[in-house]
Design a protein around this nucleic acid. Structure first.
Lengths: 326, 326
DNA sequence: GTGAAAGCGCTAACAA
DNA sequence: TTGTTAGCGCTTTCAC
């Protein structure tokens, strides 16, 4: 177990001062070619790598960005976090994971931990509300599909347009009894625009909108049970607009247990359109969010904030993906 | 933009020395209750939070563990990384993402970056070979379903048993022309035991094993094309054992374009059995890896290594999940 | 062009 | 029981 070489070792081996070695390392100030070569040779010989922690302490920045999302184990968030990580990498930042599991306490703890780690910025998309930490810090934060406070810019897809496209698709297919699922509206979220569009569109056609609450963080079995309840309460249902693709999938499964088959008896449209979902369940008609654009936009906004610019929220367009379920 | 309080500020406000404040912070040494209270009061008033970077510099440890995997945007790796992150969190470690995208150069760069960040340990599951960095460091490393070097402990599921179960299932279903997909065997990997079991089992039944190479990191369209070639080369095919669930899915899609329908004309069995996959494609018969146990095992081994113990590799049991595709 | 010295925020010998 | 001091590895101002 050899201790890694430090700058002092390099300097000694090269026969210069620590300062000179540092300047070579950082291409700063006047240096003779001879000195540069000597130092480089010493670095190579000792296999020198700068200690980032020491540098961070001095510079007061870490090159670390925290990613606070419910979980990475979900097609939408996995694709999003992968894209965020990639975009951050390109800009020289590393991503620290913060899976809040939609637990407010865990999210608050996580936030503190990440702040303690002196992260340079934060990208959040967790669904909790009233997390104090976000307000008491002045760290650059960008949120994705979530309203944290009116100080924090939001990157969202065009949820209203998505809700409109989805509802219209079901109406065009001849559905008369369309039901919507969404999570409980206990806090403001861009997501609710999907529901607003659904309701507007239904009323415009003289139909009554009905929305069932399916909390995001429940086990699948509970979700399935709640979805089954829809069929018990409304046997006349002939269309369902789910607020995400997994709920759309569960709906199709639930429907089958009532002898209703998709798309013959029931049309179903989902939301998100992650690549994995489309691969595993290509039949699903869904509204696709521009996941990787959302990621690059969020990272770009964060970088601008880090550079001291003020930035505003961004809305990106969605697309309807035609499968056979609606 | 107020600068956060440092220990010195706390000490001054409490009217003690920096050292005393540090001792209160770390519950170290003898302290009078009065001093403790004074310091705590000052900390509370200043909203003091220790600077982890400074601490890291002194302690020479960061509480950071690097996760080097091909991508988090894949059901198996997403579930694995989420479980790893959770287990690490419980032990007080934070996870830094390193999505290598199965690019050896990127993996090597990532490794260096993570090492520069003075991570305490590394959990790797990327599929590249000959990454120098793993050999030249003496950082504790645990690998998952991958052989890095014989110094590095491997956590794997029982791949041979999985291959056996899968092949036997197809044989039991009456298949006579079973083909296997796997990625090219250009480097040693526990994964190949799946293939070995398939070949052994086929030969035992007097059948000829045939394996097609489907590299892991190609775009879906290329994979689909390669899988279609199987049907062109072997129209007699009546069973396929895929080395992962997405290839199983692609096989079913490809088969349909040849007028072969699963399971009537062709039985298909996959591998991995991630929760997301099962949710989105519940019909798939597959071999399920014990993903979360693999994660906790890997983390436990890493912690033991960090505590200076030597650890050995671990193999965990797999399970056949019955769907309707085989 | 290069070196000496101070300091980033924290911890831990050692002394008092 | 508490304070003084040095040092973790690096960067940078200032002097030469």
């Amino acid at each position: 177990m050899v201790k890694p070489a430090k700058l002092d070792d390099v300097a000694k081996l090269a026969g210069v001062s620590k300062n000179t070695a540092s300047r070579v390392l950082n291409h700063r100030g006047y240096l003779s070619q001879k000195t540069i070569d000597k130092v480089h040779a010493a670095m190579a010989e000792l296999n020198y790598r700068p200690n980032v922690i020491a540098r961070q302490l001095y510079r007061q920045q870490t090159g670390l960005v925290g990613l606070v999302f419910p979980t990475v184990n979900n097609p939408f968030f996995a694709e999003l976090e992968a894209a965020l990580e990639k975009a951050l990498y390109i800009h020289g930042f590393r991503a620290i994971m913060g899976n809040s599991e939609n637990n407010a306490k865990k999210e608050e703890q996580y936030l503190q931990l990440l702040l303690d780690h002196q992260i340079d910025g934060l990208i959040v998309g967790s669904h909790n509300t009233n997390i104090q930490g976000y307000h008491s810090t002045n760290l650059p934060i960008i949120s994705i599909e979530r309203i944290v406070s009116n100080q924090i810019p939001v990157v969202a897809s065009d949820n209203y347009q998505g809700g409109l496209l989805a509802t219209q698709r079901l109406l065009d297919a001849g559905c008369q009894h369309i039901i919507h699922t969404n999570y409980p509206q206990t806090f403001p979220s861009p997501n609710y625009d999907r529901q607003a569009a659904y309701e507007d569109q239904m009323r415009k056609h003289g139909l009554t909108p009905i929305t069932y609450s399916i909390p995001f963080d429940e086990p699948e079995s509970t979700k399935l049970q709640k979805i089954r309840q829809i069929f018990i309460d409304h046997p006349e249902i002939d269309g369902l607009f789910a607020d995400n693709d997994t709920n759309a999938r569960l709906t199709i499964t639930a429907a089958a247990t009532f002898g209703k088959h998709c798309p013959a008896d029931l049309k179903v449209i989902g939301y998100d359109g992650a690549a994995i979902t489309r691969l595993l369940f290509p039949e699903l008609t869904t509204i696709q969010q521009p996941i990787s654009e959302m990621a690059t936009t969020a990272v770009n906004l964060l970088i601008q904030r880090l550079n001291g610019h003020s930035v505003s929220s961004a809305t990106l367009p969605v697309k309807l993906i035609s499968g056979t379920t609606a």
